[in-house]
């Protein structure tokens, strides 16, 4: 009986060792998981609040330049994000406001646009989500925070962009609750800090990306990585909108009631 136990224990250890080795080898072959990367990215870059002043430059394919300015307020992040944007320049769009409130369960966020000429808000319907956001190359869906929980994600490999190694992740919208303008998004996530470097946006039924967003001029502000330059290219129209982020502030308490329809409708308000 004793001898049998002696024999069995090394066998048991050997089996365990083999099993662990197999798991480790399998893991090393599979590489990191896309979901885990996106979760880690969100965890690293999540901030409670963010405020900035944006300087927008819209250049159409003929090279005509239009400039706009907005102030952006955010509370929460991704799945619980609340956003308020108020245009401050030029006079024709001054006072235009945009409010986006995330909804639970992967539903599309509630979005409203306030036009000073109307003196009241207008709700953004699903159909409008592909409309240009106040004459820029962003549409209303682009104005949402990226929430990986609303996508089926898969790691497609690695690629160097501008000599920066990136993970390439395919994100396909899960449309059980909320519909998307896009069939898929290809995300390029920097390997060094898991910050989004580029996003290629594919409209439904199209094989080539319709738009491309590039985040550049990455800097540390108050301990958080932030891209000070955001560029959205409409590859079909040939136009580009560049947003320069200024006066960035993180994690400051937001005014109570800032993300409400009452505040959106305040003429001359923030």
């Amino acid at each position: 009986m004793f001898s049998i136990r002696i024999v069995r224990r090394p066998l048991c250890h050997l089996t365990m060792a083999l099993l662990l080795s197999t798991i480790c080898i399998s893991l090393s072959w599979a590489g990191p998981d896309a979901r885990a990367l996106l979760k880690e990215s969100e965890s690293r870059h999540r901030t409670r609040t963010q405020l900035y002043a944006g300087e927008l430059t819209v250049v159409n394919k003929e090279g005509k330049v239009r400039k706009k300015g907005w102030k952006s307020f955010r509370e929460g992040y991704a799945s619980d994000a609340k956003n308020l944007i108020r245009f401050i320049d030029p006079p024709e769009v001054k006072g235009v406001g945009f409010l986006s409130l995330a909804r639970p369960g992967g539903q599309n966020p509630d979005q409203w646009l306030y036009l000073p000429s109307m003196k009241r808000e207008r709700r953004i319907a699903a159909q409008d989500r592909d409309a240009s956001f106040v004459g820029t190359d962003f549409n209303y869906e682009d104005m949402e925070e990226f929430d990986h929980e609303k996508y089926k994600v898969a790691l497609k490999g690695e690629q160097h962009l501008d000599n920066i190694p990136c993970y390439v992740i395919e994100a396909i919208p899960v449309e059980k609750v909320g519909k998307s303008v896009y069939e898929k998004k290809i995300l390029y996530l920097r390997k060094d800090n898991l910050y989004l470097f580029r996003e290629d946006l594919y409209r439904k039924g199209e094989k080539e990306p319709a738009k491309r967003m590039v985040l550049a001029d990455l800097q540390q502000v108050e301990g958080h990585w932030v891209a000070r330059k955001m560029e959205m290219k409409d590859l079909k129209k040939g136009s580009t909108t560049t947003v320069l982020l200024k006066e960035i502030v993180f994690d400051r308490p937001q005014a109570t009631g800032r993300f409400t329809l009452q505040n959106l409708n305040r003429e001359g308000g923030d």
Binding site: M118, K119, R120, A255, G257, Q262, R266, E267
Partner: peptide
């Protein structure tokens, strides 16, 4: 003048335009 009476309540007084419909 618009005077806040709290985070989500305002008092506005003076001459201004009302908008209760769809343009």
């Amino acid at each position: 003048l618009r005077i806040p009476l709290g985070p989500t309540h305002d008092l506005q007084l003076g001459r201004f335009q009302l908008g209760w419909g769809k343009t």
